[in-house]
Nucleic acid binder design. Sequence first.
DNA 1: CAAAGTCTGTGAATAATGGCACAAACAATG
DNA 2: CATTGTTTGTGCCATTATTCACAGACTTTG
Lengths: 213, 213
Amino acid sequence: MVNVNNKKIPASTISRLFVYLRELSELIKVNINTISSAELGERTNLSDAQVRKDLGYFGQFGVSGSGYNTQELKAALEKILGRDKTWNVAVVGAGHLGMALLTYPGFADHGLNIVAAFDSKAKKIDRKIGDVTISTIDDIEKIIKAKNISIAIIAVPAQSAQAVTEKLVEAGIECILNFAPAALAVPENVKVKDVDLSRELETLSYFLVNKKA
Amino acid sequence: MVNVNNKKIPASTISRLFVYLRELSELIKVNINTISSAELGERTNLSDAQVRKDLGYFGQFGVSGSGYNTQELKAALEKILGRDKTWNVAVVGAGHLGMALLTYPGFADHGLNIVAAFDSKAKKIDRKIGDVTISTIDDIEKIIKAKNISIAIIAVPAQSAQAVTEKLVEAGIECILNFAPAALAVPENVKVKDVDLSRELETLSYFLVNKKA
DNA sequence: CAAAGTCTGTGAATAATGGCACAAACAATG
DNA sequence: CATTGTTTGTGCCATTATTCACAGACTTTG
């Protein structure tokens, strides 16, 4: 849950706004100018009520009897979500996952620029991936500060994740996306979002285990 | 939420059980035989009450006054979660993300064996990544059935995700881990778990937008 | 321009989840 | 073996999130 001008807003609402935003971009591409909450919900696998309630936290954007103007709603969401801003991102760990993130085409469109990569293995250092050159982990603090990086992605093995986290925190990072299957200890001003791929798959497999034959 | 013998169990509980399981393995490695809910919570960034409540859905595993036996609890969780079983997994899309998943070392330890990979680009077909040879997407149904695959990972661009999904469903797949930023339409017997990397990062960045300076 | 139809915005109801707090169970100690 | 200290298991409560449902606003149509 997040505080915005004295209102409590569910974090899941914020997350869904990005989904609406993406869908609105698609709609605009195909020249659809108006959409109802019901249809926007349909296209995002959400209920119409959910769509309206989520938007309702931030104001009134719709027109009774016709729905939402796609361009206007998109503009409003971009403002709410701060999509006029861009962020510099660092990837720590240049294994397969780190490499995939470095070359993932989806980030740039969303104001997320990967501008640095770090690894501990001497063999990888100074290799260039796209526009980014891999640096040694010892330079984290220096480079994070020099390049004004505000988000870090941890893609190192679990056993080195805490040590990396501490370096990042020391460098002033306050947002971490963590792919390592480890519970990171951080000061409370630092926000960590865990993405645990094995766990996602395992949780999914539990569905198979538990299904009646 | 999941139904287990007439009880409603939060999906998040199931997901956390895998975290406890992983931590218990670590504890056993360093010869710790007993652990309290408080300490297990500490090590997994969860509250003691949460740990006890999660376990409580499935029975009584602890001993008042001392805590849980790590070996016994691990065995119990493995049974609950069906970790005696193994699952065959297919990756659809052999771009950078698909490649990262194909070579991710964490899955095999968890009973998740990637046994097939698919791509639409002729250039990639017949390439061998580890033990897996990339096949054409047209062979999805044939190979899924032949190799007894029960979980599919979608790592293709958003615009082809729905088409791939339909092929998978037709082939009998009931569990999908979806990395494409698209809302997949599936029959209700099919379980989809979305992992939306851009969205995770964006949601994280919102924390920066909204933070008081 | 009236009547019928559509769709929003939102309070109120419901559902889901997590935390509290304490009795009961067991352990440890001398 | 009684006393003190720990820790579990769980009913109850608080909080959060989602859905319902409908009045009111707007559109469309003839």
